[in-house]
Amino acid sequence: MTASSALSFETVTETARTPSRPATGRALSVTLRRLTKAFDGGEPVIRGLDLHMPAGQFVAIVGRSGCGKSTLLRLILGLEEPSAGRISLDGRESRDTGALRRIMFQEPRLLPWARVVDNVAVGLGREGSRAERRERAREALDEVGLTPKADEWPATLSGGQRQRVALARALVSRPALLALDEPLGALDALTRIEMQAMIERIRIEQGFTAILVTHDVGEAVALADRILVIEDGAVALDVDVDAPRPRRRGDPDLAALEGRILDQLLACA
């Protein structure tokens, strides 16, 4: 993996001149209009949210636990029904965009009884023949540097490798929108940094819109074009991050931004 990511950093630096919005690849824009969500008639978790995420943007949503950030992600993905308001993807009501939207969960959620390559092929659904699906799954595995593990059982992989398989599964159908629900939360610090670099590289290659939910402000600052701080179901802070990529950890400007966002999060305690 180390070799391939070192290589990819080269390509990253080249494309990074124009801030991370490639012309190739498909991407969806996401628009929320007065979006509200309450569970079983209780207090609303999301309160009348108005938001527009342009196609190809990398948006990070940060907030304290229970602020509604995961619910927002699930609403956008269609895993929950909004109580009121509308969600449109590329100007259309968000029904049946299927393989265009993909999610990576906090847990890898791999099928333990399927080989790694077949787990990735799950992302292709019923598209094409089985052999074709496997072929494409192998390509996606190559992208995350796990080709040698294609025929292993998930139980033999490490936590980071499993999450990379989950990433390959999310990306194999070339989605236009990738939602990331704290996907790196359970990984150790070094693996997390490697995974962040990998996600950044692949997104620049494929150009999809990405929405990352995280409580790690440093991660949001390292990856996102734009950071939204959610408090009590509403946007408390909306900042653009236009630092060039790849971003260096410990950069003073980024550290200042991180501090500002943390202050905002801590102030509402």
């Binding site: 999610i103 969960f105 959620r109 992302g123 019923r126």
Partner: peptide, 11 residues
């Protein structure tokens, strides 16, 4: 969680 994953992935 696996069942939810299956649904999300269009099974």
């Amino acid at each position: 969680q696996l069942i939810e994953m299956g649904r999300v992935y269009g099974m």
